[in-house]
């Protein structure tokens, strides 16, 4: 994930405001649930795929597709005996298409957002959403601590490796409780201590003296954002039109 990796890209999608990508993901998530015809779902899925391609993170894309493909095949593999049991010789597998298209269409846009958002960009986006302090402060603490915990995990794994204990699939199967204890006990302690320290730091900086904040460097939606939002509104409108409205005759 871009957010986890912290790498820097300057392509079209990377320069979109995080709020735009959130709006696109939210719109697609809601519309695909309403649709049940393959054609409009495929249309959203294909456009979403190009949206995802523009992140340029081909390796991660391939991995995500591989993962979701494996999951869907496993789920379908388990579902087929149930279908046979329920319907016998009348079993039809065509009904897999629509759920799969919904999953792929949603995955494309949310993955595009996850692969192109940078952590600091997310903090700015959160700030620009004008969230109240009681939502902004914990959310920003979560984002701020994700890279810190990833580094902690690396350090703990390495210090255990030096002690002679290798954390991996084998240890997880052979000594699950010990593995969890060795890995997570220091992390929980770290979390509690960091929370105490940062809580005190917040008090000592006078955070919470006012209920609203100012923004010294506000992010503004630009032409790219307007274009992207307009494009997706038209596309989702078209898809809904094909299924429910005047374009219904386009369907086979």
């Amino acid at each position: 994930m871009q957010a986890y990796s912290g790498t820097n890209n300057t392509g079209f999608i990377h320069r979109l405001d995080a709020r735009t990508k959130m709006a696109v993901a939210a719109g697609v998530s809601i519309v695909v649930v309403c649709l049940k015809e393959p054609l409009p779902l495929a249309l959203i899925g294909i456009m979403g795929f190009f949206f995802l391609l523009s992140t340029g993170r081909f390796r991660l894309m391939a991995l995500a597709y591989l993962f979701i493909g494996l999951m869907l095949i496993t789920a379908a593999g388990c579902a087929i005996p149930i279908i046979k049991l329920l319907k016998g010789s009348d079993a039809s597998y065509a009904d897999f298409l629509v759920p799969f298209l919904r999953i792929i269409a949603t995955m494309n846009v949310v993955l595009a957002m996850a692969l192109s958002n940078r952590i600091q960009g997310m903090l700015s986006a959160l700030k620009s959403l004008r969230l109240p302090l009681f939502i902004y402060l914990p959310t920003s603490a979560t984002i701020r601590f994700i890279p810190v915990f990833m580094e902690d995990v690396r350090q703990i794994r390495e210090s255990l490796k030096i002690r002679g204990f290798h954390i991996g699939v084998k240890s997880l199967f052979l000594h699950p409780i010990l593995t969890l204890r060795l890995m997570f006990a220091p992390l929980v302690i770290r979390a509690l201590r960091s929370a105490d320290d940062l809580g005190m730091a917040a008090e000592l900086k006078g955070i919470g003296l006012t209920t609203s904040s100012t923004h010294h460097n506000p992010t503004r939606l630009g032409f790219r954002d307007a274009f992207t939002l307009l494009f997706w509104v038209l596309l989702l409108g078209l898809s809904l039109g094909i299924e429910f409205g005047p374009l219904k005759e386009m369907l086979p």
Binding site: I119, Q120, L123, S124, K127, L133, S140, A141, I143, R144, P147, S194, D197, L198, A201, A202, L204, K205, G206, I207, G208, L209, T210, S212, S213, T214, H215, H216, N217, P218
Partner: peptide
Amino acid sequence: SQFFTLIVEEEIAFAMEWRGLPP
């Protein structure tokens, strides 16, 4: 243990913003 953000400028601004100082 006292940083709230990930970028230097944002960190210096953080407490001032939540104290409501003008931009």
